[in-house]
Design a binder for these strands. Structure first.
Lengths: 292, 292
DNA sequence: CAGGAGCTATAGACCCCATCTATGACCAAT
DNA sequence: ATTGGTCATAGATGGGGTCTATAGCTCCTG
């Protein structure tokens, strides 16, 4: 009873067409091959499946019983193959991305729009969280890729740099006297500083940078989102530390201006993070290709 | 994309066990064979199905998609194979018999009881009808076998004689003066005769027999069932022409006696009729074996 | 940290069997 | 009868499924 499942494909077509000859054509085989295959199946069950007549074959009672199961089974296989083709064509599938809200909003969104326009059949899942959360999600297989700020050092992960971001300090009209100056850190410390509140990587990075020059960056205001960071600066509550690319609109329209410093703030790189040694889903592969 | 379905069996087990090695054991193959099979499947779809790790394999997103279909498909095949085994063991199945009411009741019933006791999983379908109807049912494939009186001459049918029946005339107490006599047909004609009403084969046969001796058998009463035939005779309404085996109880208890004639009434043979050149269902084969 | 014990991948050889061609037997319909 | 269809059978062939042997890798353990 340990059948070659291939025989069921032959059986299915023979039963469906009612003809070994037709089945052979459909399978690109010769009629004797089909005849032989059916005979094998019959002898494996120890009972005849077909009644042979001059104009073809028809199922016996037991053959009909078998067919009722095999038909469903074969239909499922056909569906499976169609589904796989759809996945390959990106007519179907899903793309699960992890990362921070602000990167989603300011950096990823246009790419997602383009991706969705090109492959409308792909479902998109955005999973926001901190960098460690995103890494954990990735390792659990709950997302296909993560978009985070580099550097990331993890032997299990592949990170490819994709985009550079320049952080900077910005202020609104209230501090317009600073618009054309270049401030020292010393001077900056006299103004109220607005920082991202959580233990975000950006916050840590700038704190450490300032510290390396011997100062202590202590925010007067802490907020929980990039949008609030921007809004506080516009209303003159202080000088915000933000990513320049995220406030490009405000800088252009003049509602914010950059507060230049006499020390350089390192460029930070956005990286696309995927599991090393794990095949990328088709969708993820295509998306990364599109982004780069 | 024209896959060997055998590969799905390998895929199914590999996915289910999460290990190529385990799958190989389950399939009585070696691990490299399984590895090779999976690779074939992957290259046929043009995408990886598994993530290989040091402790086995796990499905990729696309592999999981495939698995959701293939799992169902394989389960159906397993069910199909179990079903076929059940059919072969006669744990399951059906037996569809055609024939006349009286043959069912008086001849077939004990055999059906025995068959059902031995194979309680087999569903029995009794399809009563006249002999031509039964033949038609058989040719339409609506019954597996027919139980009818011979002779049957039809090149499409196989008929095996199974049991002999002796028709005879019987009467009740009212005609007890005939109990020890041997009647001539001439004398018989003076008594009221009770015959089966429809154009039954028995009725035709006895009419022709009597006619061959130069008499005309005209019934005084016609009834539509064997039971009525017996009941009428018991109540003294006349002499009934019945099958002796169907009145064995009445003959023993003395409520009826046989009216002997000076001419022999041919024995009639009950035949089991099946389609020639068509494989018998397992159940039909077993039933015939039991009856004979 | 070396080494063992899993795992999967690769290479190459073998031989079985799925498939082929050729033909036969049968039936139905012209 | 002949033709054209069906399925069955016989025998030959070669591709590919399977094997053994081995490598490479990761994880775990003494």
């Amino acid at each position: 009873m340990t059948n070659n499942y291939e025989l069921y494909k032959v059986f299915y077509l023979a039963a469906k067409t009612g003809s070994l000859t037709q089945a052979a054509k459909a399978l690109y085989l010769t009629q004797p091959s089909v005849s032989h295959a059916i005979k094998q199946l019959e002898s494996s069950f120890g009972l005849p499946l077909f009644t042979r007549t001059a104009k073809g074959v028809s199922l016996t009672q037991e053959g009909a019983m078998l067919y009722s199961y095999i038909e469903q089974s074969q239909i499922l296989i056909t569906l499976a193959e169609e589904k796989m083709a759809a996945l390959k064509n990106l007519d179907s599938g899903e793309l699960r991305i992890g990362g921070s809200d602000s990167l989603f909003k300011h950096y990823l969104l246009p790419h997602l729009e383009e991706f969705h326009a090109r492959y409308p059949g792909i479902k998109l899942h955005l999973n926001h969280g901190t960098t460690p959360e995103t890494i954990a999600f990735l390792k659990e297989g709950r997302i296909d890729l993560g978009v985070v700020r580099m550097p990331i050092v993890d032997p299990q992960l592949d990170v490819r740099g994709s985009f550079q971001l320049q952080d900077c300090f910005v202020a609104g009209a209230r501090y317009s006297e600073l618009q054309d100056k270049v401030l020292s850190l010393e001077m900056l410390m006299h103004y109220p500083i607005i920082l991202f509140s959580r233990n975000s990587r950006v916050r840590v990075a700038i704190s450490e940078l300032v510290q390396s020059y011997g100062y202590n960056l202590k925010p007067d205001i802490e907020v929980g989102s990039v949008d609030l960071l921007i809004e506080c600066a516009r209303r003159g509550l202080g000088i915000s530390f933000v990513t320049r690319e995220f406030v490009s609109r405000e800088l252009e329209e003049g509602s914010l201006f950059e507060v230049r410093l006499d020390v350089p703030i390192p460029i930070s790189q956005v990286g696309i993070m995927t599991m090393r040694n794990m095949p990328l889903s088709i969708t993820a592969r295509k998306f990364i290709e599109l982004v780069q």
